[in-house]
Amino acid sequence: MSELAIEREIDRSKMQVSDEVAIEITNMNKWYGAFHVLRDINLTVNQGERIVIAGPSGSGKSTLIRCLNALEEHQQGRIVVDGTELSNDLKNIDKIRSEVGMVFQHFNLFPHLTILENCTLAPIWVRKTPKKEAEERAMHFLEKVKIPEQADKYPGQLSGGQQQRVAIARSLCMMPRIMLFDEPTSALDPEMIKEVLDTMIELAEEGMTMLCVTHEMGFARQVANRVIFMDAGQIVEQNEPEEFFNNPQSERTKLFLSQILGH
């Protein structure tokens, strides 16, 4: 939970928030059995926004973004992603999943496939992209995350940071309009966190709509246009990063910030 300094200048020319709505959540509730995990969530995300969701563990932040591509089911309320409503209709779910990229804490690469095969699998089988084209695109994104030379290796032969960058490239190969990050740096050594954050910053610089659950407050301060603080399954406070860090309103937020930034 450090505040890793981001040294380089961030190019903000393409970081523009448009009026187009990417995700709309209205009155969403979710229970695990009898436990009320998400309580009355209302959130609208516009195309091009970079949102960081912070909060203590168990606050429901991961569950929230996992609801957005139906890895978790919500029981009440509406979620509309990119114009498609999430319902029990499997076709809608598959459509949303192919439009929304997701990066996990533990990478979830497929260990029996090479890096290149990891990146081309979904384009070939879901999008029906010709193999050659899928491979060219995969190499393009692997170059973007700066590991094209690892294309023929297996995930188990790469370091954690490299694996996470492959996971980002794998999602990008599906040409998503929205990217979800579920604690992408929490399982990494400090030396590797930076390389993953750099990749995420580059993605933000290109105008990608991003929702990140993360403890990297440096990233939140410099890249996000909005920080959301969650506790006990509800959104407690949201604001622009400058205001959020310098002038938190709720007592709970103040306590949280003092604990992770206090030393």
């Binding site: 890895l71 533990h106 979830n108 690469l109 497929f110 699998l121 979904a122 599906m174």
Partner: peptide, 10 residues
């Protein structure tokens, strides 16, 4: 995570 990885890719 393997199921989720596969699901998240559609």
């Amino acid at each position: 995570g393997q199921y989720e990885g596969a699901d998240s890719l559609g």
